[in-house]
Design a protein around this nucleic acid. Structure first.
Length: 442
RNA sequence: GUGGUAGUAGCUCAGUUGGUUAGAGCAUCGGAUUGUGGUUCCGAGGGUCGCCGGUUCAAGUCCGGUUUACCACCCCA
C-alpha cells in the first residue's frame, strides 16, 4: 500500500467548511473593492523569476518557489501580486483612464518556514491606485483597506491602522546629511529597534551617524512618540524645516478625507512604521490588531518608482495587500465568523417508484430555477428520509407520497416550525417560492 | 537556516513502575423506524500508537535518529 501523502508544509486543503470561510473572505473583499470603484484583474500564478528579482533584488530568491521549467526558463510562483500588476498597467498605461483603480484576489507562494499567521501558500487581497500623485489616492486606498476590515465586523476597538510617511523620514535623514543608501540603512535599523536591544541599535547606527548617534536616537524617540496629526504638526514645526511644510499640507489633506469619511478613529499616526521595502516612497501604513498582538493584517503604501524600475514609463502608484491567514485567525478569535455553509432550500422525500418519478420532475424544475434541492439518492423509509431532510439543513421538505399524488397535490413542511401545507402540483413552484420567503406557521 | 515543545481513531484526549487482543467521548455509518426530523436505545467501521533503528523475555511507554506540526528567532515584498 502506498504511504499516505500529506499536503506539503505550509499548504492547506480546503474541505467545505474551510472553503466556505475562504470564499466568505473573498466575497467581502470583492464587495468592498467594487463598492469603492475598483475593478478586478488577475494574472498568472507562475512568472519569470526576473520579474521578482528586478523588483526586490537577487536575495529574494531564497524566499521564492522558483525553478527551471522544461524550456530552461527561470521561473517562480508569485510571492505577491504587485509586480504582475505593475507590468500589466505599465504596458498599457497610455490607454488606461486615470486614476487606475484595480484589485485582485490571488494565491501567492513564499518558500519560508511556516508559523502562526504565515504559510507557504496564502491568498492576498491586493488593491492599487495608479496614475495619481496626490494624497487623495492614498486616502482612497486607506478607506478601502479600513472598509474591507469593517465589513467583517471589525471595529476600531479591534484593529488600528498605523500611518507613517517615508517622505518625512527621508527628508529628516537627508537633513542629517545622509545620502539615500545610508538613509535606507538607518531606516532598517529604526524598523528593528523595538525588537533588539538598545546597545546593538546604537552600535549599528554609529557606523552611519558616528557622533550624531545619540542625538539621532533622541529625535527618533520623539518622532515615535507622535501619535496624532496634531502631535505631528508640532513635531515638524519644531524641526524648523521649511521643506516639510508642503508635506504637512498633504498630511492634512489625507487626514481630512479620512476624518470626513468617519475613518479617523481607525487610524493613528505612527512613524515607527517603516516597512521593509526599499521601494516605498510616501505614505505607508500597516493594520494591526488593536492589542498589538499578531502579525500585520494588511500593509501598503506609495511606491512611485516601481513601474519605472520595471522598464515602463514612470507612473505614480499606491497600494496595499491583506492576507487571508491572519485575518481568518483574528475573526475566529473574536467570534466574528458567521455560519458559512450555504443552507439548502428544499429536501425532497418520496414514497415508491411512481412517486420518485414525480419527485424527480419537481426536483429538476426547481433546480432549473436556481432553487437548491437535494433528495435521498437511495430510497429509504419515510422516517429515515425525514431524518436525512433534517440533517441536510433544508428549510423546506417536499413530500411526494402515494396519498398526495393520488390527488395530484404536493405537501410541504417547514423544517423549522413543523408547519405543513398542501397544494395542487401545478402550483408547486409558486408555493415553494412563497414558503421559502415566508415560512409556514404551525 | 537556528532553537524550544509536541505527535495515540476524522476531532478532543485517557492509557499506571515497560506486562494479555490499545480505550473513551464526540463525529461517521447501520439498525430499532416502509407516512413525518433534532431526543433515546442497540450495533458497526475506523489505529503500522508519526517513521526508522536500539535496549529488553516483553516497548504506545525507555534510548538514539528522523519527519511533521506548533511556538520563538532570521526574514517579511
Amino acid at each position: 500500500m502506498a504511504s499516505k501523502i500529506q499536503t506539503l508544509p505550509g499548504f492547506r486543503d480546503f474541505p467545505p467548511q474551510a472553503c466556505a470561510l475562504r470564499n466568505y473572505l473573498f466575497r467581502k473583499w470583492r464587495a468592498a473593492a467594487i463598492a469603492h470603484g475598483f475593478q478586478e484583474y488577475d494574472g498568472p500564478v507562475l512568472e519569470s523569476l526576473e520579474l521578482f528579482t528586478e523588483k526586490s533584488g537577487p536575495e529574494i530568491v531564497t524566499q521564492l518557489f522558483n525553478f527551471e521549467d522544461k524550456g530552461g526558463r527561470q521561473v517562480s510562483l508569485r510571492p505577491e501580486l504587485t509586480p504582475t500588476l505593475a507590468r500589466m498597467v505599465g504596458a498599457n498605461a497610455g490607454s488606461l483612464k486615470r486614476p487606475i483603480k484595480w484589485f485582485s484576489i490571488g494565491e501567492c507562494f513564499r518558500f519560508e518556514k511556516q508559523q502562526k499567521g504565515r504559510k507557504r501558500s496564502f491568498y492576498q487581497f491586493n488593491a492599487d491606485i495608479l496614475g495619481e500623485a496626490g494624497p487623495g489616492a492614498d486616502a482612497e486606498l486607506i478607506a478601502l483597506c479600513i472598509q474591507s476590515m469593517r465589513s467583517f465586523g471589525l471595529g476600531p476597538e479591534h484593529v488600528v491602522l498605523r500611518l507613517s510617511d517615508r517622505t518625512l523620514w527621508m527628508a529628516f535623514l537627508a537633513a542629517l546629511g545622509l545620502d539615500e543608501e545610508a538613509s535606507i540603512k538607518a531606516l532598517s535599523i529604526v524598523d528593528k529597534m523595538e525588537r533588539v536591544d538598545a546597545d546593538y541599535t546604537r552600535q549599528q547606527l554609529s557606523h552611519i551617524l558616528g557622533e550624531g548617534t545619540e542625538s539621532f536616537l533622541a529625535r527618533v524617540a520623539a518622532m515615535k512618540a507622535v501619535s496624532s496629526i496634531e502631535g505631528l504638526e508640532a513635531f515638524v514645526s519644531g524641526l524648523g524645516m521649511e521643506a516639510l511644510s508642503e508635506r504637512m499640507a498633504q498630511w492634512r489633506e489625507l487626514w481630512g478625507i479620512l476624518d470626513a469619511m468617519g475613518l479617523a478613529e481607525f487610524c493613528r499616526v505612527d512613524l515607527g512604521i517603516v516597512r521593509g521595502l526599499a521601494y516605498y516612497t510616501g505614505f505607508v501604513f500597516e493594520v494591526f490588531e488593536r492589542s498589538g498582538e499578531g502579525r500585520a493584517l494588511a500593509g501598503g503604501g506609495r511606491y512611485d518608482r516601481l513601474v519605472e524600475k520595471l522598464g515602463y514609463a514612470p507612473l505614480h502608484a499606491t497600494g496595499f495587500a491583506a492576507g487571508d491567514v491572519t485575518l481568518a485567525d483574528l475573526l475566529e478569535s473574536k467570534g466574528l465568523l458567521p455560519s458559512l455553509l450555504p443552507a439548502l432550500d428544499c429536501y425532497v422525500v418520496y414514497g415508491g417508484e411512481a412517486e420518485k418519478a414525480e419527485a424527480m420532475r419537481a426536483v429538476a424544475t426547481l433546480r432549473s430555477l436556481g432553487i437548491s434541492v437535494d433528495y435521498p439518492v437511495k430510497a429509504a423509509g419515510f422516517g429515515k428520509m425525514f431524518k436525512q431532510a433534517d440533517l441536510s439543513g433544508a428549510r423546506l421538505c417536499l413530500i411526494f407520497g402515494g396519498e398526495e399524488l393520488a390527488e395530484r397535490r404536493f405537501k410541504m413542511r417547514d423544517m423549522a416550525s413543523g408547519g405543513e401545507v398542501t397544494g395542487p402540483l401545478c402550483d408547486l413552484v409558486e408555493g415553494v417560492k412563497l414558503r421559502l420567503a415566508h415560512g409556514i406557521e404551525k
